[in-house]
Structures are given as structure tokens and as C-alpha cells.
């Protein structure tokens, strides 16, 4: 009997997926367009950048040759369409500065940044959950302390926190390397730098909804059944408290990638963020566009994952 009933939901799910894919394609197109024109707006000659920057002595012939090679002598619209055509076939072009294909270059950098962001998100969730649960149990003092910690953490800028962590753990205590070495030890400080401000932010949201859940009638019912304080939190309240934080995690992932630009630079850690920063500095247009597109794809995927996680955590959404 369930077979008949499932046909409609499957068709509906297919429609939803198609709509999502269409939306994603639109977003990627907009991102490619905006970055293409934004980079063109930076003053200076791209051909000069290709040949070593404005300071280098280049002959007009060499410049003309480079312009012809990269299609820079074409009208802007033609350049734009040519680039879109290449992007559709998956060709991100050649880096001006590094003289390498962009796609393999960026994909090689992607793993390190993803690892950093995912770990940071996980650690932020653990910290936020722990703090919210603890501070909702310990009465007024714990509540004030928890809330204060979260506000301070959420307000910490990455560059300051990174420096403070290096001074504390590398310079004074000598426990961890000040620059990101390969291996687990090298990851600790970068991950903490990204996780702590995010944890403060998530914790604030969780604690509010945790409080609401703990005062709700279903928690009274659970207590009246003999559920313990720990059980009330674990079985009922945490799940309710997580819902708004889950929906914000997609956004949080985006902020982690932008945070990675700072963190990878400070800890001298190879990754997408640092590559992006370098590319912007030398006006390496194909790398910038490619990196931004990859970040956009990651952001879209993360939003989809967030939606999925929300549906798992909140069965009420599945009915829609």
C-alpha cells in the first residue's frame, strides 16, 4: 500500500531537486559574471600583470603579443562570453602569474581548506553545545558567565585570536608549532582560531532556544514521566535547540572560508584562501574567478547539506 502513496512524494522530490539545480546554476553564473567584471574594474593593465607586474620593463611588442594570446585585445563582451564558454566546459583557464592550469592548481589547494573548515565547524558545534548545556544547568551565575563568554568569543577577530593563540601555545608554552606543519599538531591552532568565534555565535543562538525548549510543556510532561535533568536535555531539549543553529551552519561555512583567507596567511598554511589572496594581489584573473567559483560551489553544496540535516532533525519539514 505504501508503493502507491510514495509515487507523489518522489515526483515532488524530483521537482524540488530540479528547482534546486536550476537555482544553483543561476547562482554560479551570477558569481562568474560579477567576479569577471569586478576584477576588470581594478585599475592597471592585465597584460602587464601577466608579464611580471607594472614594475617590470616590458616592450610594447611583448605586451601586444600577450594581449593577443590571452584575447585581451578583444572587446570586453567577447572576452566575457569566451570565458563563460570555457567555464561551462570545466576549463578554468591558465594562471597569469603561475603559468599553470587553474583547475588542477585550485583542486590541489582545496583539500587543506576544506579540512580546516569542516574541522572548525565541528569543533564550534561541540564548544557551543557544551557551553549552552552547561550554562543552562548551573543557575544564574553560569548563565551570565556562559552568555558573557559567548559574546566575547563571537566578537574576537580572527587575526587577533590567531596571534594570541600563537603567543600562548607556541611562544610561552611551546606545545604547538606557530606555523602550520603537516600533521595533526599543525591543525590545532588554525582550527581553534576559526572555531572559537563561530562557537560563540552558535552558542548564543542555541542557549536561547534551549531555554525555550526547557520551559515548554513537553518538557514538563517528560519530567512528570520521571525523566532526569540530563535526559530532558539529551532526549528533548538539545534537538530543539539545534534547529536554528543547523539552519545557520550553511552561512557559517561561508564565513569559515573567508576566515580561512586570514588564518592560512597567518599560519603560513597552504590552501585556497591563501592562493586567492595572492591571486588578488597580482591581479591573476583566472585564479580569482576560479577560486571564487569553487567557493560558491562549496557554499551551494553546504546549503543543500544544511537543508538535508534540518529535515533529518525536524521531521515536521518532511511533510512539506
Amino acid at each position: 500500500m505504501a508503493e502507491v502513496a510514495r509515487v507523489a512524494p518522489v515526483a515532488r522530490a524530483a521537482r524540488v531537486v530540479l528547482a534546486r539545480l536550476g537555482g544553483a546554476a543561476f547562482v554560479l553564473w551570477m558569481v562568474a559574471t560579477l567576479t569577471f567584471f569586478a576584477v576588470r574594474l581594478i585599475p592597471g593593465d592585465p597584460a602587464e600583470a601577466i608579464l611580471g607586474g607594472p614594475g617590470s620593463q616590458t616592450s610594447p611588442e611583448a605586451l601586444a603579443a600577450v594581449r593577443a594570446e590571452y584575447g585581451l585585445d578583444q572587446p570586453v563582451l567577447v572576452q566575457y562570453l569566451a570565458q563563460l564558454g570555457r567555464l561551462i566546459t570545466g576549463d578554468l583557464g591558465r594562471s597569469y602569474a603561475l603559468n599553470q592550469d587553474v583547475a588542477p592548481l585550485l583542486i590541489g589547494q582545496l583539500g587543506g581548506t576544506l579540512l580546516l573548515a569542516v574541522l572548525a565547524l565541528g569543533v564550534a558545534w561541540l564548544l557551543a553545545l557544551g557551553l549552552a548545556t552547561w550554562s543552562s544547568r548551573g543557575g544564574r551565575v553560569a548563565w551570565t558567565v556562559g552568555s558573557g563568554l559567548e559574546i566575547v568569543a563571537a566578537a574576537l577577530p580572527h587575526f587577533w585570536l590567531a596571534t594570541a593563540l600563537i603567543v600562548l601555545f607556541s611562544v610561552w608554552l611551546g606545545w604547538l608549532p606557530p606555523i602550520s606543519t603537516p600533521g595533526a599538531a599543525g591543525l590545532v591552532l588554525p582550527v581553534l582560531t576559526l572555531a572559537v568565534p563561530l562557537a560563540g555565535f552558535l552558542g548564543q543562538i542555541m542557549r536561547e532556544s534551549l531555554l525555550t525548549a526547557l520551559e515548554s510543556p513537553f518538557v514538563l510532561s517528560a519530567r512528570a514521566r520521571g525523566e532526569s535533568e540530563l535526559g530532558v536535555r539529551w532526549v528533548h531539549a538539545i534537538r530543539h535547540a539545534s534547529l536554528p543553529a543547523i539552519s545557520l551552519s550553511g552561512w557559517a561555512f561561508g564565513s569559515l572560508i573567508s576566515g580561512a583567507v586570514v588564518v592560512e596567511t597567518i599560519f603560513a598554511r597552504p590552501g585556497l584562501g591563501r592562493t586567492l589572496l595572492n591571486a588578488v594581489t597580482v591581479r591573476d584573473v583566472p585564479v580569482v574567478v576560479g577560486a571564487v567559483l569553487i567557493v560558491a560551489v562549496g557554499y551551494i553544496l553546504m546549503t543543500l547539506l544544511t537543508d538535508l540535516a534540518q529535515r533529518i532533525a525536524d521531521p515536521r519539514l518532511r511533510a512539506r
Binding site: S216, P217, F218, L220, S221, A222, A224, R225, V235, H236, R239, H240, A313, D314, P315, R316
Partner: peptide
Amino acid sequence: DVGLVVQDALVSLDPLR
């Protein structure tokens, strides 16, 4: 030894479970 039933089960039963 004692069971409790309160008003409006929509919110008195955990809506997620």
C-alpha cells in the same frame, strides 16, 4: 505513582518525536 496530563497535547508531546 502518578501520571500527568496537561492542556494542549500539541505542545505537551515533543513535536519532534
